[in-house]
Lab assay of single mutants.
Amino acid sequence: MASQGTKRSYEQMETDGERQNATEIRASVGKMIDGIGRFYIQMCTELKLSDYEGRLIQNSLTIERMVLSAFDERRNKYLEEHPSAGKDPKKTGGPIYKRVDRKWMRELVLYDKEEIRRIWRQANNGDDATAGLTHMMIWHSNLNDTTYQRTRALVRTGMDPRMCSLMQGSTLPRRSGAAGAAVKGVGTMVMELIRMIKRGINDRNFWRGENGRKTRSAYERMCNILKGKFQTAAQRAMMDQVRESRNPGNAEIEDLIFLARSALILRGSVAHKSCLPACVYGPAVASGYDFEKEGYSLVGIDPFKLLQNSQVYSLIRPNENPAHKSQLVWMACNSAAFEDLRVLSFIRGTKVSPRGKLSTRGVQIASNENMDAMESSTLELRSRYWAIRTRSGGNTNQQRASAGQISVQPAFSVQRNLPFDKPTIMAAFTGNTEGRTSDMRAEIIRMMEGAKPEEMSFQGRGVFELSDERAANPIVPSFDMSNEGSYFFGDNAEEYDN
């Protein structure tokens, strides 16, 4: 993207840094990872977990959730003011799984939030270390993106479920800051804005008074975040219109849905970061690795190297396929839920299948599930090659597409044709070009129609051997075009429920 120079890199967003050079960025990201790792080690000690239990991804998720809940100030305040039966607002906890007599047992633990905050700050040299908290939120978000298709949420806001490739980060909490905003897809931002506008339509006082002023500035800020994701002048001009509207209503909703559809071809720039579970960072720190000293990046080879040398386990339900569970977590670790499966298959070195073909449910185990038949197995999170994460949407291309997802959002900077089903997408653009945004709409449609099938995206960008740390010898991959490109292809993934 041309304006790259004016933006802070995501590592800076990730670490609240002012302008830093590459070495400083690597050190501050490393410091953040160190903090998460030290916190995780301490929690495993508190909970008396064995090494194996500490490497269980379900335990990692519970521990991450506990610290996120302990620092969720708004919710904590709300819980104190609106006490609900049987919930102690000062405590947080969740299921911890232990191996007892050759069987997995679930144990519900409860801790004072104050105590968890103390352990977290102690692991982070006394700081609140917001960057580390956001990092864990993005890992949870990436896992949700890989596990669930947001059909219901899309339909509720009037969008087409086939636009799911635009929904990265749709389950990120509001408090995820600049680093969170960077990884949100165009569809996620559109959905947040539509929800806001709908509230304004239904509630006369939404934009009024002292609160209304705050609401208005939040609305304009979200519009600017979305505008910054678009790469064409016409899309940005249309966002200006939406932002400046005196009284946002149905016309703005129409414009936003139009823009979301246009992003299936004229893709937005959305950041991709490899955020790993805390149970990967903990053992690495415990083994003596100093992330701050060595430096770390979320968008280069580092996460690949770390996963190459990590042992992570997962509980497996009786009829689940461990290899499929591994694929789910591998995609989440690489922030690749909406990437082209052919690119992923090449990088991973084994075939990556669409969601609907995987015999696996989510990673988390519900409290009512029976533990008797639970097994555990090693997650295979290694890769054959590594590639640089991208934040450009890439230019655009036609490809055989599917009944489910009709476009992709690249996660890796790797040369390819970008699949999208042009006739299906263009069919949504018939007729409606009147109104105050008509010239911009016409211009956007013209650009979409001009998108050429034979153009290559990320020209000359390749993948790298894991021994090639400096990215000196790019390998331009070859793809098996007979395979499906979309992950949520004609899909039956479970729906995400809060």
Results as ranks from 00 to 15, higher is better:
Gln4Ile: 14
Gln4Arg: 01
Arg8Asp: 00
Tyr10Pro: 06
Met13Trp: 03
Met13Ser: 01
Glu14Phe: 04
Asp16Trp: 02
Gly17Pro: 15
Gly17Cys: 15
Gly17Tyr: 00
Gly17Arg: 03
Glu18Gly: 06
Glu18Tyr: 10
Arg19Thr: 07
Gln20Thr: 01
Thr23Asp: 00
Glu24His: 07
Ser28Tyr: 02
Met32Arg: 05
Ile33Lys: 02
Asp34Phe: 13
Gly35Met: 05
Gly35Cys: 09
Arg38Trp: 12
Phe39Leu: 03
Phe39Met: 15
Phe39His: 00
Ile41His: 01
Cys44Pro: 02
Thr45Phe: 06
Glu46Gln: 07
Lys48Asp: 11
Asp51Asn: 15
Asp51Ser: 10
Tyr52Pro: 09
Glu53Ile: 08
Glu53Cys: 08
Gly54Gln: 13
Leu56Ser: 10
Ile57Trp: 04
Gln58Ser: 05
Leu61Ile: 14
Thr62Met: 01
Met66Cys: 11
Val67Thr: 06
Leu68Asn: 14
Leu68Ala: 10
Ser69Asp: 02
Asp72Phe: 06
Asp72Asn: 07
Glu73Thr: 15
Arg74Thr: 04
Arg75Leu: 02
Leu79Cys: 10
Glu80Ile: 13
His82Asp: 00
Ser84Thr: 13
Gly86Met: 08
Lys87Met: 11
Asp88Met: 03
Asp88Pro: 00
Thr92Asn: 14
Gly94His: 08
Gly94Gln: 09
Pro95Gly: 14
Pro95Arg: 08
Ile96Met: 12
Ile96Ser: 07
Tyr97Arg: 11
Tyr97Pro: 03
Lys98Asp: 01
Asp101Gly: 09
Arg102Ala: 11
Arg102Trp: 15
Lys103Asn: 14
Trp104Ile: 12
Met105Ser: 08
Glu107His: 14
Glu107Cys: 08
Glu107Ser: 12
Val109Phe: 08
Val109Lys: 12
Leu110Gly: 03
Tyr111Pro: 01
Asp112Leu: 11
Arg117Tyr: 06
Arg117Ala: 07
Ile119Ser: 03
Trp120Cys: 08
Trp120Gly: 08
Trp120Tyr: 14
Gln122Thr: 13
Gly126Gln: 13
Thr130His: 15
Thr130Ser: 08
Thr134Ile: 03
Thr134Trp: 05
Trp139Thr: 08
Trp139Phe: 14
Asn144His: 04
Thr146Glu: 04
Thr147Gln: 12
Tyr148Leu: 01
Tyr148His: 09
Leu154Pro: 01
Val155Trp: 01
Thr157Tyr: 01
Arg162Ser: 04
Arg162Val: 12
Met163Lys: 02
Met163His: 02
Cys164Gly: 04
Ser165Leu: 01
Ser165Met: 13
Leu166Arg: 00
Met167Tyr: 09
Gln168Asp: 06
Leu172Cys: 12
Pro173Met: 02
Ser176Asn: 03
Ser176Leu: 01
Gly177Asn: 04
Gly180Ile: 03
Ala182His: 15
Val183Ala: 11
Val186Phe: 13
Gly187Glu: 06
Thr188Asp: 06
Met189Gln: 14
Glu192Pro: 06
Glu192Asp: 12
Glu192Met: 11
Leu193Cys: 14
Ile194Leu: 13
Lys198Asp: 01
Ile201Gln: 04
Asp203Val: 03
Asp203Phe: 00
Asn205His: 03
Phe206Thr: 03
Trp207Tyr: 13
Trp207Arg: 08
Arg208Phe: 01
Arg208Leu: 04
Arg213Met: 13
Arg213Glu: 07
Arg216Leu: 10
Arg216Gly: 05
Arg216Trp: 11
Glu220Cys: 03
Leu226Pro: 08
Leu226Met: 11
Lys227Asn: 12
Gln231Pro: 06
Gln231Phe: 01
Arg236Cys: 04
Met238Ser: 12
Gln241Met: 10
Gln241Val: 02
Val242Gly: 06
Glu244Met: 06
Glu244Pro: 10
Pro248Arg: 03
Gly249Leu: 10
Asn250Gly: 11
Asn250Lys: 07
Ala251Arg: 08
Glu252Ala: 06
Ile253Trp: 13
Ile253Leu: 11
Glu254Asn: 10
Leu256Pro: 06
Arg261His: 07
Ser262Met: 09
Ser262Glu: 08
Ser262Asn: 08
Leu264Trp: 10
Ile265Asp: 01
Ile265Pro: 12
Leu266His: 04
Arg267Asn: 07
Gly268Ser: 15
Ser269Met: 09
Ala271Leu: 07
Leu276Asp: 08
Leu276Ile: 11
Pro277Ala: 08
Gly282Glu: 06
Gly282Asp: 10
Gly282Ala: 15
Ala286Thr: 09
Ala286Trp: 15
Ser287Leu: 05
Glu292Val: 14
Glu294Phe: 04
Gly295Tyr: 11
Gly295Leu: 04
Tyr296Lys: 06
Val299Ile: 11
Gly300Pro: 04
Leu307Thr: 10
Leu307Phe: 11
Gln308Lys: 03
Gln308Cys: 15
Gln308Ala: 12
Gln311Ile: 02
Ser314Asp: 04
Leu315Glu: 05
Leu315Cys: 12
Arg317Asp: 13
Pro318Gln: 11
Glu320Tyr: 02
Pro322Trp: 03
Ala323Phe: 12
Leu328Pro: 05
Val329Asp: 08
Val329Asn: 02
Val329Leu: 13
Cys333Val: 10
Ser335Tyr: 07
Ala336Leu: 15
Ala337Thr: 10
Leu341Asp: 14
Val343Met: 13
Leu344Trp: 05
Phe346Pro: 01
Arg348Trp: 06
Arg348Ala: 07
Thr350Phe: 14
Thr350Val: 08
Ser353Arg: 15
Arg355Gln: 11
Arg355Asn: 12
Arg355Tyr: 06
Arg355Ile: 08
Gly356Asp: 09
Gly356Gln: 09
Lys357Met: 10
Lys357Cys: 11
Leu358Asn: 08
Thr360Glu: 01
Ile365Trp: 10
Ile365Gln: 05
Asn368Met: 14
Glu369Val: 09
Asn370Ser: 10
Asp372Met: 10
Met374Tyr: 10
Thr378Tyr: 07
Leu379Trp: 02
Arg384Gln: 09
Arg384Thr: 02
Trp386Tyr: 10
Ala387Tyr: 10
Ala387Lys: 04
Arg389Pro: 03
Arg389Leu: 00
Arg389Trp: 10
Arg389Cys: 01
Gly393Phe: 02
Gln398Thr: 01
Gln398His: 14
Ala401Val: 00
Ser402Trp: 00
Gln405Ala: 09
Ile406Gln: 12
Ser407Thr: 14
Ser407Phe: 00
Pro410His: 06
Pro410Arg: 00
Pro410Gln: 06
Gln415Thr: 12
Gln415Met: 13
Arg416Ile: 08
Leu418Glu: 00
Leu418Phe: 01
Asp421Ile: 12
Lys422Gly: 14
Ile425Phe: 02
Ala428Gly: 04
Ala428Arg: 04
Thr433Ile: 15
Gly435His: 01
Arg436Pro: 05
Thr437Pro: 04
Thr437Lys: 11
Ser438His: 15
Ser438Arg: 00
Arg441Phe: 06
Arg446Ser: 13
Ala451Thr: 01
Ala451Met: 05
Glu455Thr: 14
Glu455His: 11
Met456Val: 08
Ser457Pro: 07
Gly460Arg: 15
Val463Leu: 10
Leu466Phe: 14
Ser467Cys: 11
Asp468Cys: 14
Ala471His: 01
Ala472Tyr: 10
Ala472Cys: 14
Pro474Ser: 06
Pro474Lys: 00
Ile475Asp: 01
Pro477Trp: 01
Ser478Asp: 00
Phe479Lys: 01
Asp480Leu: 03
Met481Trp: 15
Met481Lys: 12
Met481Tyr: 07
Glu484Gly: 03
Gly485Met: 05
Tyr487Trp: 03
Phe489Thr: 12
Phe489Ile: 06
Phe489Arg: 00
Asn492Gln: 06
Ala493Met: 07
Tyr496Thr: 00
Asp497Met: 15
Asn498Ser: 10
